[in-house]
């Protein structure tokens, strides 16, 4: 059930990433990887990162495995952070998503640079913008997922009271 949820979330993120044009400021797939890692731990985080990264690499025009490697590292470390620290408030979550995006960019761009496959130039502003975008989307996702069951419960209770 949980595996199906993770696969579905990853597929949805990929569909969003490839369907919505002009979403360069947010990497939805990375948001899903960090979310899964924080909620399910390092093993699920790293496996989600590997799977999502490889599929994303295959759909992009780069070397297959570089995005997978970057997302595996991010998923594993985010999972470790999720199990070792209490990351239950919006601010710590914002920091984790922001730092995860920076780490992903360092590994991803760094590997391309080291292997002399591609030059990314001084993309600091773009990376910072993407980190902020990912952090905001990640925190909002957490809030929505956590608030949704409560809202549904309250609506049901209110309907019950009205009927009586």
């Amino acid at each position: 059930m949980k595996v199906a949820g993770v696969v579905l979330a990853t597929a949805l993120a990929l569909a969003l990433q490839t369907t919505l044009t002009g979403t360069g400021a947010v990497d939805f797939v990375l948001v899903v990887v960090v979310y899964v890692a924080l909620t399910s731990g390092p093993v699920t985080g790293l496996l989600t990162g590997t799977l999502a990264g490889l599929v994303q690499d295959a759909l992009a025009s780069g070397v297959i495995g570089i995005g997978g490697l970057a997302k595996t590292i991010v998923g594993f470390l985010a999972g470790i952070i999720g199990t070792q620290f209490i990351v239950a408030q919006p601010l710590p979550r914002l920091v984790v998503f922001f730092a995860a995006t920076l780490l992903h960019a360092v590994v991803f761009h760094g590997l391309y640079l080291v292997l002399n496959l591609r030059q990314f130039g001084s993309a600091y502003a773009a990376i910072a913008g993407q980190a902020l975008g990912n952090a905001l989307v990640g925190v909002v996702t957490f809030q929505v997922v956590e608030l949704l069951p409560g809202v549904v419960e309250r609506r049901r209770a209110a309907k019950h009271r009205l009927r009586r």
Binding site: T18, V26, Q56
Partner: peptide, 14 residues
């Protein structure tokens, strides 16, 4: 055009 690039680092469309 039916899809944008899968990652923001590559400017491709499908």
């Amino acid at each position: 055009i039916i899809a944008a690039g899968a990652t923001p680092d590559f400017r491709t469309v499908t």
